[in-house]
Simulated assay, not measured.
Amino acid sequence: MGRAIVGAKCPKCREGKLYSVNVLSYRKLTEVNKSCKVCAANFHPEPDFYYGAMYISYAFSVALVITSLTTINLLVDVPKFWMYMTMVVVLNIVLLPAMLRYSKVLYLYGMSRLKYRGY
């Protein structure tokens, strides 16, 4: 299951792709495929299903801020405010696609009724 989550694969067959572009791409950030091309599983079980993924995305952002602030405090004797802000902004811009997409992947795996069916 870990490889399927990292690869953003279908929770039912673990072969079809959830996204039409690479998971780390900045194109089509919020667009999830309608269904699996391999097993025809529906990736949109109800309207606005992925709104719940915002909570996971928020947790990713909080973890990123805490990690970056701790790292700066460990590496710099007297950190300046601009160091904190620059690191948080840059890391958020760089990791935005991964955080948005993996929050949807984790939400789909955890909250949908799609269960693995080994064919």
Results as ranks from 00 to 15, higher is better:
A4C: 13
I5L: 10
I5W: 05
I5S: 02
G7I: 03
K9Q: 12
C10Q: 04
C10L: 03
R14A: 09
G16S: 04
G16Y: 05
K17W: 06
K17G: 00
S20K: 13
N22Q: 14
S25E: 07
Y26P: 06
R27C: 01
R27M: 02
L29Y: 06
N33S: 13
N33R: 14
S35N: 06
K37W: 01
V38I: 12
H44R: 06
E46N: 15
P47L: 13
Y51E: 03
G52R: 05
M54G: 04
Y55I: 08
I56W: 04
F60R: 02
S61C: 12
S61A: 13
S68H: 01
L69P: 00
L69A: 13
T70I: 06
N73L: 13
L74V: 03
D77Q: 08
D77L: 06
V78L: 10
F81R: 09
W82L: 07
W82T: 07
M83R: 00
Y84H: 06
T86Q: 04
M87W: 05
V90R: 01
N92C: 07
V94N: 07
L95G: 11
R101A: 05
R101K: 12
K104R: 15
V105Y: 11
L106V: 08
L106P: 02
Y107N: 09
Y107C: 05
Y107S: 06
M111E: 13
R113T: 03
R113I: 00
L114H: 12
L114M: 15
L114A: 10
K115G: 00
Y116L: 15
G118V: 06
